[in-house]
């Protein structure tokens, strides 16, 4: 048994230490926001946050994240109470098929925690590892800017921390 800290809660997982974090999140913990895309750490759809940094969960074995804080999109907010990054993506209608969007949001969230007011160039550079085939890139850029503004406003300030 391996103990994982996911979205602020300890989870006992019965899995081999070389199991990719993504498989455990989706199959064992039923947290299905992070997606299996390429399985090679090349597309970004599996991105989650580990100790504040964006991590490609499909190439991250459980062994490496034992004892670290894992945050998935479900840990940021819910349908009833979306986090600023989720609100911003909805308000900008940044998803088309949506497969890449959870990963996009997680990497953008990690950027905004490090740099609350990123420039357009900084957002583009940061999101470079994440691929989108529908082509909503311009909306995604607008959504990240909007999220930065939402996080900056006082009423949303308490939502910025990652649980």
């Amino acid at each position: 048994m391996i103990t994982l800290k996911v979205n602020g809660r300890d989870q006992q997982v019965d899995a081999d230490p070389d199991t990719p974090l993504l498989y455990v999140l989706r199959n064992d913990l039923e947290l299905n926001a992070a997606k299996f895309g390429c399985g090679l750490g090349q597309c970004g759809s599996c991105t989650v946050i580990v100790d504040g940094k964006a991590v490609l969960s499909c190439v991250t074995p459980l062994l490496l994240v034992e004892g670290k804080q894992v945050t998935t999109l479900e840990g940021l907010g819910s349908v009833a109470a979306p986090a600023p990054i989720q609100r911003a993506f909805m308000e900008e209608q940044a998803a088309q098929c949506g497969y890449c969007i959870a990963g996009m949001m997680m990497r953008a969230q990690a950027l905004l925690m490090r740099n609350p007011k990123p420039t357009d160039a900084q957002i583009r550079a940061e999101l470079e590892p994440n691929l989108c085939r529908c082509g909503t890139h311009m909306r995604i850029l607008r959504a990240v800017h909007r999220a930065a503004r939402l996080m900056d406003s006082a009423d949303a300030a308490s939502d910025r921390s990652v649980r």
């Binding site: 090679l40 750490g41 090349q42 580990v50 940094k53 964006a54 991590v55 490609l56 190439v59 991250t60 490496l64 994240v65 670290k68």
Partner: peptide, 14 residues
């Protein structure tokens, strides 16, 4: 060839 980087997921002791 491609390889994912592990900077964000591997700590110094590991």
């Amino acid at each position: 060839p491609i390889m994912p980087g592990f900077a964000a997921s591997i700590d110094d002791a590991q």
